[in-house]
Design a protein around this nucleic acid. Sequence first.
DNA 1: TGTTCAAATGTAACCGGTTACACAGCGCAC
DNA 2: GTGCGCTGTGTAACCGGTTACATTTGAACA
Lengths: 333, 333
Amino acid sequence: MSRLGASIRDVARETGLSTATISRVVNGGTRVSEETRKRVLDACARLDYLPNPAARALSTRRSKVVAAIIPTIEHSVFAKFIAAIERTLGLRGYSLVLAISNSDEAEELAAARKLLGMGADAFILSGQTHSGALLNMLAKRQVPYAHTSVWDPDSTCPTVGYDNAGLAKEAVKHLHSHGHRNVAIVHGPLVESDRTQARCDGARSLHGLFDTLDFFETPLSVAGGKACVGRTLADGGGYSAYLCFSDVLALGAYFACADAGKRIPQDVSVMGFDNLDWAAEVVPPLTTIDLPAFGMGEAVGAQIVECLETNAPLQSQLLPARIIQRGSVARLT
Amino acid sequence: MSRLGASIRDVARETGLSTATISRVVNGGTRVSEETRKRVLDACARLDYLPNPAARALSTRRSKVVAAIIPTIEHSVFAKFIAAIERTLGLRGYSLVLAISNSDEAEELAAARKLLGMGADAFILSGQTHSGALLNMLAKRQVPYAHTSVWDPDSTCPTVGYDNAGLAKEAVKHLHSHGHRNVAIVHGPLVESDRTQARCDGARSLHGLFDTLDFFETPLSVAGGKACVGRTLADGGGYSAYLCFSDVLALGAYFACADAGKRIPQDVSVMGFDNLDWAAEVVPPLTTIDLPAFGMGEAVGAQIVECLETNAPLQSQLLPARIIQRGSVARLT
DNA sequence: TGTTCAAATGTAACCGGTTACACAGCGCAC
DNA sequence: GTGCGCTGTGTAACCGGTTACATTTGAACA
């Protein structure tokens, strides 16, 4: 850490002023004459002075670092989310420290401990279920935190995200309105994600609309989706539509269909969830639900900074998400 | 930052020892009797004591934070790389702060400034070309840094990655050995990436082997690859193979072929670069070059920590990468 | 001219750790 | 018994900022 950088006393010496004055101009600069301000800024530039962050953090008791713990970064929804957080925080002079929990509560707790011990001022968590120890630790130290990718107006903790159950219902209704009565739902591991669980719950609540509504759990990857859909195709499951709770799984479904010689949407329909970048490019273009990953990152980031600067309480926030109709769902007549 | 947490003096008071002793047991614990160690650890647990990181950083002049600046996180090669760094650093008690430069030198410089002003002990940069101001800033403060995704034994700065030019040559040779003489190379924006530039240079050096070896620049996305390949297909370019300098572009090529009614590999061959997770799942499976994204993250992470702890100099390191033959390249006879 | 007040700047305590150095106590060799 | 060395612990300076409070200066005003 700037072992060789100039310190505030160097600047003070250089300008013949006191460290207090230097500090004042470096921050906001209240109560400093225009002339000294210039002189100080000039000296700072000449000495290439950068305030020592540790010293500043020690004094002010804030590090301007916010921590995000996410289950994985390899899913592009999370990548976009992180990119948005980084950008939003950066614009406001905050930094992002990242930890990856691999969807494991113990790892998440360990990560939080490390990040707290690193000086994070606030936390951004994924999903709604976390170990009590984690929440306790944050509460005891009064570190603000938000849950993301979920929206739950009843939660005691602020949640910023979307209504997973509601969106799943809409997706299911969409298929129903297109005449589908035999639908397979393909989703990632339930234990790893309360959001997946919420989507399944939402979908299941509408099972009365269908002749069959089956649920299949598979690893959350293209390979997982392909294997799962390939299996049901081979079994002759007879589903007219596959609703995948991630575009990644949907892409796997596409390849499974290609392997099985089934055409989309003529032979089977496929619907996704996420609206990843390539969803409009696949052949046929994928009907999916547009999740505001980037907007969600911006929203939490902005709220967290606001909270840190003004002590405004974090508030739950519902982000808009909607079905994007493209060409992968057939209308059965 | 733990506004309410116990301080080292609280623990000292609780145990009736001095802060020096507490500090000694909390760190490594040299020269402390087994009995006091127990007493201290016990008190720490009871008070839920976490050392204040700012105070520690101020004293030791190290923050145990390493910064990574990457062009984008939305490309899964980078996501994997970041995941590996995070994991490797985390295992050793270090944290990762992330900044995204959007492939822009000015943004990169600003990010580095911010991260330095945040107390990063070391930097991980992408690629080899960076603004002089950035490198100066790091050098002046003696902050160690490494370039990644490249390997250049002649560079004065340590590079850990792979030989982009060499790998491109191998890819081109692979196509040549399969009888392809009319090849199109599809790559992302040159200005954004010296690695892309190196790959192009490598490929171009072998142009004598071909009847035609054309280069096409397109946005680095599925849409970009699809549009680019779609265009040449419509133009009747007559290429027997497309070498895409990213699997993402190759996926676009797949969709362009689907749209144009061309079969892979019967009508055109496609080769990728990256070996992303889904490369084995697409139909037909994609022949590509396996880049050790995860291994690269582990390697830099480990080296950086080693350097920080023992002052060992960072060393350039070549990571193995090789062609994975699958089904997307036809052998022309 | 003396008083009042605001603006500009300085002084020094403080944030919470680390660590060089001092020192006490003890065992051991001579 | 003296001296030496080793172990375990305490003392206090220090890291580099911030900021409450003190001080100086000068203008305004009676």
